[in-house]
Structures are given as C-alpha cells and as structure tokens.
Amino acid sequence: MTEFIEAVQTIPLIRYSLLAGIVSAFTFGTVGSFVVTRRISYIAAAIAHSMLGGIGAAFYFGRSYDIAWLTPMLGGLIAALLSAAIIGWVSLKASEREDTIISAIWAFGMAAGILFIHYTPGQKPNLESYIFGNILVTSGSDVTATFALGLLVLILVALFYHKLVAVCFDEEFARLRGINSGAYFLLILALTAISMVLMVRVAGIILSLALLILPAATASRFSRQLWVIILVSITLTLIYNTCGLAMSFQLNVPTGPFIVLCAAAVYGISFLIKRKRA
C-alpha cells in the first residue's frame, strides 16, 4: 500500500487516474442510478459504443486537416450526444422499433470508428486503449475536463431532480402537469452520454459502461429510495475506483478490467443476500 501512496505522490499519471476516478464516481453514481432504475442500460450501452465512431472521426479529421482542437474526447462527446439524440427521438416519436435503432447505432458507431482509424494518417492510435481503457494515457487536461463535465452533470441533476424522477416514473403524467417530458428524457440520455465520455480515457468504453451500471444495480437491490441508491452508488464507485487502482497497481494487472471484475463480483454476491422486500 505504501508503494501505491508513494506512486500517487511521485507519478503524475497515477495521480491523474486517481483524481479522475474520484471525480467521476460522483457523476457515475448519480447518472447510473437514473439509468438503472429507468431501465435504459441498453441505451447507455449503445451510446457508449457509438463513441468509438466519434473518437475515430476526431483522429481522422484532426490529423488529416490539422485541426488541433478536435481531440478524441471531443469527438467521442459529439458522437455520444448525437446517438443519445437519435435514440431519444426514435423512442419518443418514430414508429421504428427502439431496440433495432439501438443495435444499429451500436454497430455503426464501432464500424465507423475502426474505418476512420484505418484511414488516419501517421501513427495509428491504439484503439484498444479506448475500448478497454489505459490509465497511462490520462493527462492533467483529462482530469480538468472530467471535473468540469462532472460538475455540469451534478448541477443539472440537482436543479431538475424531481422533474427527472417524475419523467422516469410517469412520463405521461409529467406531460399533463406541463413538463416537457421528451426534453427531460433527452436530458437523461445526454447526461448519460457526458458521463460515459468522462471515464473513457481511464476505463475505456466497455468498462465505463460496467462502472455506470453495476454500482447502481447493486445499490438498487437494497434500497427503495432513489436518493439512497444514488448515495450508495457513489460510495461503491469511489471504493471501486480508488481501491481498484491501488490493488491493480500493487498486483501489476490492468486497472480497468480489475475494477470492473470487482464491481461485478460485488453485484453477483448481492444476489446471495435477499433483495429488500418488494
């Protein structure tokens, strides 16, 4: 353990990862609880995977046309928000089957990302680090961006908490009380998209998804109040991110997968304990 504490003090990369993990625990715990209780984790999955298309496009256009501000994180954010908007719109308005669109966006995003990266000039970026995460690419500016976006998510949820809950529970009734239900549903999807982007550098697409869902799923087995689920999810994610990083450093195993295996194990164990009476 002392080795890890020493590493945090001396190695910026480890410090940045730890900070990113702590900051994102708050957004993940909050947004994840909405996603799990509203039963839209499959939408979160599609949004997460579609990010790869944006990341690939950012690499391709950024390098080809020398656009310095077009970072992979920005590309991922745009792609995630775009897919959130499309899925949200389909689920609210169009007659097409929602699950079909979700799968289509999922597959399209990944395929586009791989093709863009194939055609990206110069040294090819390592796709795997975006899919499975790599703490060694975390930088100070990533942590700043994570903090800023995370703060935005938390402020939005704090301001509109009751309206979001109302729309999640009964979209039709909220509309009858003058709430723009569609807009709030899109807001939930947008918050999900932003949260996913936050963790991609550290944990990667697949593992961010697991971190969004698993703590909230575990928490929701033991509580019947959303705010309690949110608090428990935040606590669990904090523990997973900090202890996971420390232990993976100590054991010299990849951080992201290690954290997710811990989270999945706790979720699995929670099944052995009786769910609070429904």
């Binding site: 209780t37 009751h162 309206k163 809950v165 109302a166 999640c168 529970f169 009964d170 009734f173 909220a174 009380r177 003058g178 709430i179 929701s220 509580s223 019947r224 109040q225 959303l226 309690v228 689920i229």
Partner: peptide, 14 residues
C-alpha cells in the same frame, strides 16, 4: 421503481 408514496403525490404539484 424506487419512489415513496409522498413523492408520487407531490408530482401533482409539478
């Protein structure tokens, strides 16, 4: 869905 009776009734004041 995790919500209390009172929180549901409060939706009438949305």
């Amino acid at each position: 869905y995790p919500i209390s009776a009172l929180d549901i009734v409060l939706m009438g004041r949305l």
